[in-house]
């Protein structure tokens, strides 16, 4: 399927979900849908660097929360439309991605991962002491009651997130099959050899760190409106980092489909567990699934499917 066709398919999906949304009267559906779309976006963003290039980023929460807090700050100053906040969030997190990439991409493997974890901790410390956005006591936002095109604001947020998630998946698929995608695969498999065969490894890594960071920032920008109250411990919650790693791993990290499957599956399981068991059970379930998949199916669900197909 060409990229154009795939893009059109994504557009069709958005329209179909919008039409289906006309029939929904329970707002919880949009709440839950937002969470799923947000995680598809985050997992896809993580996968650009983690799945395609093999650089495991533990700092998802930093990029995500930065998008959210920049959004709080800019909103407090100018109250621009949501789309502007999203763009500013993308710029801020993309810039941090560039800086982090420049400082850390000479580190390989686990050292890079530790550096990203450190970034998340530093960023949280900075935001906790940033009084303008509420500091440690957090920021309250008044969520508008209605979206700009009618319907509730949560419904509007859901569609905004859906469009971003679909856009990110289309982008990831384009990258995967492009020259850049082959270069990233070379980096993942053997960076030194990739470089010896003409792959500009540093430039490609910087490119995806920026893209990945920017997409995470975009995912975070609408968060303050979604939760209405934002404080550092929840914005920088480790669950974001753990979930965005678990989702591509469970779905299959080297393809665009993996993070989508993983995000839908894990979010559904977590939402169900939250309602039926307890919210504390969430991370335990994620942990168990991760252990199961890493030991039994290291290439995720897509890997299992490929195995079945090649045996058939």
């Amino acid at each position: 399927m060409t990229n154009l066709r795939f893009g059109l398919l994504g557009l069709a999906l958005i329209v179909a979900l919008w039409l289906a949304g006309r029939l929904v009267t329970n707002e919880y559906v949009f709440f839950a849908g937002y969470a799923v779309a947000q995680y598809i976006l985050l997992a896809t963003a993580w996968n650009l660097l983690g799945g395609y290039a093999g650089y495991v980023n533990f700092g998802t929460a930093a990029f995500f929360a930065l998008g959210a807090y920049v959004s709080v700050a800019v909103n407090k100053l100018f109250e621009p439309p949501l789309i502007v906040l999203i763009l500013v969030g993308a710029l801020a997190s993309g810039a941090v991605g560039l800086a982090m990439g420049y400082l850390t991409l000479k580190l390989r493997g686990v050292f890079f991962s530790i550096a990203t974890l450190a970034l998340a901790i530093v960023a949280q410390a900075v935001v906790t002491n940033w009084e303008f956005v509420g500091g440690s006591s957090g920021a309250y936002l008044l969520r508008p009651t209605a979206g700009p095109w009618g319907g509730s604001y949560v419904e509007y947020l859901f569609y905004v997130m859906l469009v971003m998630a679909v856009g990110a998946v289309v982008l990831a698929r384009c990258i995967e099959r492009s020259k850049i995608g082959f270069g990233l695969a070379a980096i993942r498999d053997d960076e030194l050899v990739g470089e010896a065969y003409g792959v500009p490894t540093l430039r490609l890594k910087l490119l995806v760190t920026v893209l990945s960071g920017a997409l995470m920032g975009m995912a975070g920008a609408p968060l303050p409106f979604y939760v209405a109250y934002l404080d550092p411990p929840s914005a920088f919650n480790l669950a974001y980092a753990v979930n965005t790693i678990a989702m591509p791993l469970i779905g299959g990290a080297s393809t665009w489909v993996g993070p989508v499957i993983g995000a839908v599956l894990l979010t559904a399981v977590q939402e169900t567990a939250m309602v039926t068991i307890s919210s504390a059970a969430n991370l335990m379930i994620v942990g168990l699934l991760m252990v199961l998949f890493i030991s039994l199916a290291p290439n995720g669900i897509m890997g299992l499917l490929r195995g079945v197909r090649s045996r058939a």
Partner: peptide, 21 residues
């Protein structure tokens, strides 16, 4: 030999071709 382990044989060549050839 240090092939790109997750890529097919043809794609191993394709990387070199895309970037250097």
């Amino acid at each position: 030999p240090r092939p790109f382990g997750s890529l097919t044989i043809a794609d191993n060549l394709k990387v070199a071709m895309l970037y250097a050839g």
